[in-house]
Nucleic acid binder design. Structure first.
Lengths: 156, 156
DNA sequence: AACAATTCCTAGTGAAATACTAGGAATTAG
DNA sequence: CTAATTCCTAGTATTTCACTAGGAATTGTT
């Protein structure tokens, strides 16, 4: 019942894009550095997110990535579904369910469906915008302590 | 975000024990046959469940396994925790959390905690007794469906 | 005592997934 | 032209998954 590093890194990287939303593209290397993720690995994840239409890429010098939609319009579920597959504890309760001989006669399936629904509810109702607001809270706490880890500045 | 066959088989087998609760031990071979699970594999799962105190074993002829507690007293969470590990999408939000440098300054952790809580709520509140009641409903449906399909096929 | 049915235990294994790494081609701003 | 970037294909070490194998120990029955 674990999210893998794909989902973890993907969400962290997408949060970074949400923070810089509307300020032009940012490069993989910048995100990878800030979030301590392997550059090459993040490249793969971004390829999937791009193919899924969640982010837009710009090639060449001063290129990079930006969110394809506003942070309010991208749920964590959107990201997880691309990087981890359907949100479902079992294939038989996925949106496009895999057939199982028990299907119509399975008490455990009712259980997995309950679990699937509760998971989906959380992941669909949580957006990048919400996550950004949470991050700002932490940022404010940090400011009072020492330095900010999340800045909206155009450092280059 | 998937439950593996360990959790799936484990819950199905435990349901079988719940169905026979109070009627003496049943053997692995009987459960494996009924639930279409590899006998040897189920043996491993039952070893874990026994070590965790969820089931009791009886060796020798006419031996087998039975629930260590009443079906009302065993939650699906109890089973999953034994066979799949802590109920948590990320190690940093498990009950005995793995340390992470971000820990106190991580917006995504708040998200994973929300997800963890909702998953745990479902799995803790669902017991084997509940699952057994669900199974009985299907049994009742099957009876009426079976009769209906017999008469239908006779007509056709 | 012999036997059959069962759990118990240790070890092994092929396939798939995970979490990357490597290297270079294509593109674009300055 | 050059430096910075994405894009693409391939490879790889490690871990996990889902079993399988084989026999020792235990216990009810005859």
């Amino acid at each position: 019942m674990r999210i893998t590093s794909k989902g973890e890194y993907g969400v962290r990287a997408m949060l970074e894009l949400a923070i810089h939303y509307g300020q032009g593209p940012i490069s993989i290397s910048a995100i990878a550095k800030k979030q301590e993720i392997s550059e090459h690995y993040l490249e793969h994840l971004f390829a999937s997110l791009r193919d899924a239409g969640l982010i837009t890429s710009f090639r060449g010098a001063h290129g990079g990535y930006e969110l394809a939609r506003a942070p309010e319009e991208i749920s964590i579920g959107d990201i997880i579904r691309v990087l981890e597959g359907p949100i479902a504890p079992m294939d038989c309760v996925a949106k496009d369910p895999v057939f199982c001989t028990r299907m119509g006669n399975c008490a455990t399936r009712v259980l997995w469906k309950k679990l699937q629904t509760s998971m989906e509810k959380v992941l669909e109702s949580t957006t990048l915008a919400w996550l950004y607001e949470e991050a700002k809270k932490f940022d404010a706490e940090d400011d009072s302590l020492c330095n900010a880890s999340i800045t909206k500045s155009n450092e280059e």
